[in-house]
Nucleic acid binder design. Sequence first.
DNA 1: ATGACGATTTACT
DNA 2: GTAAATCGTCATA
Length: 227
Amino acid sequence: MKLGRSFYLRDTTTVAKELLGKRLIHRLNTTTTLEGIIVETEAYLGVSDPACHSYLGHRSKRNESMFLPGGFSYVYLIYGLYHCLNIVTCESNDPQAVLIRAVEPINGIDRMQTLRMRSRSSRQGPLKSVTEIANGPGKLCLAFGIDKAHDGLDLQGSKIYLTEYDNSRVNIPSCSKLALSPRIGVSGPAKDLPLRFYFSDSPFISRKPSTRPTSLDSDLGGKSNGR
DNA sequence: ATGACGATTTACT
DNA sequence: GTAAATCGTCATA
């Protein structure tokens, strides 16, 4: 069942949290549909959030879509190479959004593999394991064939949209534990806000939860854990 | 006009 | 761990 407008017209943090477990769908054509379960999101809180593209009301050609009502897409090019998919939240002219950072692929996986190969760096690489197809915002957009052409789309439409995780017969998402962390790749005054949401037991997230080594440190030469 | 840089990913030391 | 790839946007001239 497709998420209605009212789902998106709410507090961005709430929407970011509740998007976990929902289904992202891109209908490529009548015969091919790409689907994944959202397992990782980040909230970007608009004019008051130094990490947000619309901080202090900043408005440009790039982020114009953020000013649309909740339930539209905001897709932008990053590092000149990759795209990031956001879901706009709140009312018109309240430019907040949720970044979709990772999904668990559940339908159209073969097609996703092909789409991933289009990136320059992936040109001739081996096939990705399923957990690596869409475990990052740039990878996700590649796998789902999402680019600037999909910026400003109404997700109430039938091209790209989100639904409840209800359907029967597909794989059960291998995740459930909700965790928070600071947002990835954010620097500056807002870098420590816990606005990243993810299923900590999902193998499909972009980064493993920071784990504290137990008191025993008998393991040899382990890579340094972030923290 | 020119230069710095980014909500990233990949390859390589 | 570090660096490269690549381009729209912004600051400076």
